[in-house]
Design a protein around this nucleic acid. Structure first.
Length: 206
DNA sequence: CGCAGGATCCGCT
DNA sequence: GCGGATCCTGCGA
């Protein structure tokens, strides 16, 4: 199987387009234990500075958000409770926009994912959430700022997506009007998404 | 230095 | 569905 990093220019799309273009692409991580990967099936856009749900809301610039102000295609990892979440930096320099990877469908290295996630899990349960997929792939805060077009953590070309479902983002209830923005994208009817049954604003056939 | 607040997960009801 | 675990970050004192 051939998994090759995309070029850096792949990430130079408007953020809402990038969030959809990432669906079907493969997220790959190699550690000394081996390589694990999965098809991206669910993403969300965060568009600072106007997006109240974004960490970069109001152009807030801190050590944590710093990478968001840099060039597209780099990893914005951060800790949430006891979990690590992975974002793809998007937008131009000084436009702090990102795409959150919310779920993947396991592709290669499933035995590695199972070791990392613990026993008694179905394939679906390995990676159907933003904190779960980072643990399954071995992605940590140490990957902060890593270019996602280079080993050992990168995006590769994957499969074609027939239809994309669009709806409000998950878990941002305390964000005013922003909680209603339809900036969550997932592969329509793919069972590996974090919440298969949710409000659908639109279905887009590709 | 202390404290409040999460882009979550898991287990229990 | 709901609540607790658990810990890093940002901000104010």
């Amino acid at each position: 199987m051939i998994l090759q990093p995309v070029s850096a220019s792949f990430f130079e799309l408007p953020t809402q387009e990038l969030a959809q273009a990432l669906l079907g692409m493969v997220l790959v991580k190699t550690t000394r234990d081996g390589t694990a990967s999965g098809w991206i099936v669910e993403t969300e856009s965060y568009i600072g500075p106007e997006d109240r749900a974004a960490h970069s809301y109001g152009n807030r610039r801190t050590p944590r958000t710093e990478v968001m102000f840099g060039p597209a295609g780099h990893a914005y990892t951060y800790e949430m409770h006891t979990h690590c979440l992975l974002n793809v930096v998007s937008g131009r320099v000084n436009q702090p926009e990102v795409v959150l990877i919310r779920a993947i469908e396991p592709y290669t290295g499933i035995h590695l994912m199972r070791e990392r996630r613990g026993p008694g899990k179905t394939d679906r349960e390995l990676t159907n959430g933003p904190g779960k997929l980072t643990k399954a792939l071995g992605i940590t805060k140490a990957d902060y700022g890593h270019p996602l077009f280079e080993e050992p953590l990168y995006i590769a070309s994957g499969k074609h997506i027939d239809s994309i479902a669009i709806g409000p983002r998950i878990g941002i209830d305390n964000s005013g009007d922003a909680k209603h923005y339809p900036w969550r994208y997932w592969e329509h009817q793919n069972p590996f998404v974090s919440k298969p049954v949710t409000n659908v604003t639109e279905i887009r056939y590709m």
